[in-house]
């Protein structure tokens, strides 16, 4: 209660505001049926959580969340949505009971677990006291790079990052092998263009520099 009257009050207010938006968006996603709206709202969820990561000083995580969560995964979900129907089928009440129980149990367990978590920025917590503190001390001498995140990712944990890059590569390879390399539509399009002689009228919408009439 004492923290409310010093400088932390604004931070607390921003945290409550952003988490409230996250909660509202999550409820909206759960209640919606239109897949397009759900995809857009999930992009919004990522963007708001990125803003929240900035509020708790995790700028690198926020950057990744904004780029991957709000940009990339929204587009991939849109692409997946185009391959299926546009609305989710409503489930019967009885079938929604199981997931509801699972969600409630998981949520209760998570809230119970937060009791043991150290406070934000606690210098004696396990994450800050052990190897993280050592990196902060020796990082500048070892690597001469001001942003401590970069040498931890690329130098101290170079093997991990190599593994992550390989995972991303393998994910792309697996999707391409499962769904095809996506060249079919291009070949189809080019074949159609070769068949129709009036090529100019077909390409007109893609160029847009021609007369708008």
């Amino acid at each position: 209660m004492h923290a409310m009257f010093n400088g932390d009050f604004g931070v607390i207010l921003v945290n409550i505001f952003l988490l409230g938006i996250l909660f509202a968006v999550a409820i909206a996603i759960a209640r919606m049926r239109s897949l397009f709206a759900i995809v857009m709202l999930s992009g919004m969820y990522s963007l708001v959580s990125a803003a929240w990561y900035v509020a708790i000083d995790a700028v690198d995580v926020a950057f990744t969340e904004a780029a991957v969560g709000a940009g990339m995964s929204t587009v991939v979900l849109l692409g997946a949505m185009l391959l299926t129907s546009r609305t989710a089928k409503p489930e019967k009440f009885f079938f929604r009971l199981g997931p509801l129980l699972v969600c409630l149990a998981t949520g209760a367990a998570l809230i119970y677990a937060t009791v043991d978590l150290p406070a934000l920025g606690d210098a004696t917590s396990a994450a800050n006291a052990g190897v993280g503190y050592t990196y902060l001390q020796v990082g500048w001498f070892d690597t001469g790079i001001p942003n401590i995140v970069t040498p931890v990712l690329a130098s101290y944990r170079g093997f991990d990052t190599l593994g992550e890059t390989t995972v991303v590569f393998v994910a792309g390879l697996a999707v391409a092998l499962l769904l095809g390399f996506g060249e079919r539509s291009l070949a189809e399009r080019i074949r159609n263009e070769g068949r129709t002689s009036n090529r100019g009228s077909k390409k007109a919408p893609a160029v847009s520099d021609e007369d708008p009439a």
Partner: peptide
């Protein structure tokens, strides 16, 4: 690696719908 893999994934999804 990341940009190539992401674009490959996007093409795999988007390339299935002609237009």
């Amino acid at each position: 690696g990341v940009s190539g893999a992401m674009l490959t994934i996007f093409y795999a999804f988007a390339g299935r719908v002609a237009e």
